[in-house]
Computed example of a mutant assay.
Amino acid sequence: MARYTGPKTKIARKFGEAIFGDDKSFEKRNYPPGQHGNNRRRGKKSEYAIQLMEKQKAKYTYGILEKQFRNMFKRATAAPGITGEVLLQLAESRLDNVVFRMGIASSRPAARQLVSHRHITVNGEKVNIPSYQLKAGDVVAVREKSKSLEAIQNSLANANHVYEWITWNTEKKEGTFVSVPQLIQIPENINVQFIVELYSK
């Protein structure tokens, strides 16, 4: 599957926040990219530009391509509830995102790779689809043969985030996706209303 593999700091600078996690390069140059850097005059952004930027931020944050994102929006529109909130909930319920949230991987791309390489199980079954949608109560675990992987051990050792909708058992190296998070619980700085307005045009 095609995915963005270019310079991440440049993208983070475009949005003005470290959307890919801790980034020392971003901290040094937290202004928009370009030849003139901070000195370039930037006119007021149009409503469309703001909406488009918010959609792109969401796509880069969760590592989702345009076609996937559009399909996810269609699912969110058809589902009961507020479309924008459901959209983010669908993104948060992806297996690669939950593996990242649990601390099994240090980033979403790393989590996607672990899932693709069959290091992760869901309810005891191997699942190698990063976009697999988890349901409340699903148990996500590191496969028995993969528990000694250095990358997983290092990531778990440095994991310090606690999320209300996820539980984690360090001894068993498994966690439970307790429930779909509410919009207020999701830590990502994404204005879903702009995305809904963009797709509604």
Rank of each mutant, 00 (worst) to 15 (best):
E197G: 05
I129Y: 03
V140R: 05
N158G: 07
Y48A: 13
S25Q: 11
K14T: 15
G34Y: 08
M1E: 08
T9R: 04
K44E: 04
Y60N: 08
Y31D: 02
L65P: 04
E47C: 10
A79N: 05
K172I: 06
K57E: 08
T121C: 10
Y199H: 07
V178S: 11
I195L: 02
N30Y: 14
V162F: 09
V139N: 09
A79G: 07
G175K: 13
G124M: 04
I50S: 07
S179H: 10
G16F: 00
G16L: 01
E188A: 12
N71M: 15
F26S: 03
K57P: 03
N71I: 05
Q113L: 04
N160M: 08
V140A: 02
G16Y: 00
N71A: 12
I129G: 08
I129M: 14
K145F: 04
A141Q: 03
K135G: 15
Y199P: 00
I190E: 00
A110T: 11
I184F: 06
V192Q: 15
L87C: 09
D96V: 13
I166C: 06
F177C: 14
R112H: 10
N189V: 13
N191M: 09
N128S: 14
I11K: 10
F26R: 01
I190Q: 05
K126Q: 14
I184V: 14
M72A: 09
A12E: 13
M1W: 07
A12P: 06
R40T: 07
K57S: 03
Q153G: 00
L114G: 01
A79E: 07
A136K: 09
G137T: 11
R118M: 06
K45A: 12
Y31A: 09
K74Q: 05
V115C: 11
P32V: 09
G84N: 03
A58R: 10
Q185T: 10
E144P: 02
K57Y: 02
T83Q: 01
T176W: 00
K126L: 11
N30I: 05
G21Q: 00
K172G: 06
D138R: 01
E144T: 08
G37Y: 05
R3H: 12
L90P: 04
I11M: 09
K57L: 07
G16V: 03
G84I: 04
K147L: 08
Q113S: 07
T77H: 02
K8F: 04
V98L: 11
